[in-house]
């Protein structure tokens, strides 16, 4: 069984799980089950990331999404899903309409994607076509480790681009600034979320 076949097999498995779970999320009327299927779908996506040699992103996906975000969602489900609200049904007509539109939408998206000749783009942008630097400086599949380049990129260094590049070409910039912005953003969001969730309760107590 060649690596290709293993890759294909794993891809098929993860893809089916991810898509199927996603569809199940839509189809399910029970909020708890929806949460379960979502975890499945996100986890399968993480698998896909691993297949794509994005080990750090995949890990993050598992940790943050599956471990953090979904737990958060489940908290929300538990806080709100009291009694009658666990199942909120939609009308069948809505379902049919949503399904129709979904299929059309999918057709549209995929026809758009399919209309592009990715071969040209891939070939032009293939590791070989991209230039020596890329193949020399960053090759995830060969190195199997994206953590360091990612970390460097976040602190503003791009060894995958700058190493071996023409000395006169301008230096690539890393993601230091977006990283910082996102950090601050996170902080603000946390405070804001805490405030939103808390303020209402206090006002309720005041009302009471």
């Amino acid at each position: 069984m060649s690596a290709e076949q293993i890759h294909s097999g794993l891809f098929a498995l993860f893809a089916i799980i991810a898509c199927g779970a996603a569809i199940a999320v839509v189809m399910s009327q029970n909020i708890v089950r929806m949460a379960f299927w979502l975890v499945m779908s996100l986890g399968a996506t993480a698998g896909l990331f691993f297949l794509l040699d994005a080990d750090f992103v995949g890990a993050t996906q598992l940790l943050v999404y599956v471990g953090g975000t979904v737990v958060l969602l489940i908290f929300g489900v538990m806080l709100t899903a009291s009694g009658p609200y666990i199942r909120i049904r939609m009308s069948p007509a809505e379902g049919v309409l949503a399904g129709g539109i979904g299929i059309l939408f999918l057709a549209m998206v995929y026809s758009t994607v399919g209309a592009v000749n990715w071969e040209n783009v891939s070939s032009a942008a293939s590791p070989s076509g991209l230039g020596a630097g890329v193949s020399e400086g960053f090759n995830a599949s060969s190195q199997g480790n994206t953590t360091r380049p990612l970390g460097l990129a976040f602190i503003g260094l791009r060894p995958d681009r700058d190493l071996g590049a023409d000395i006169h070409s301008p230096l690539s910039t890393g993601y230091l600034l977006p990283f910082e912005i996102v950090s601050v953003h996170l902080l603000v969001v946390l405070i804001g979320a805490a405030y939103l969730a808390r303020a209402k309760r206090r006002s309720d107590t005041v009302e009471e």
Binding site: A98, I101, L104, F105, M108
Partner: peptide
Amino acid sequence: MFIAVGVL
């Protein structure tokens, strides 16, 4: 839904 239909 409008967004979706609009995009379509």
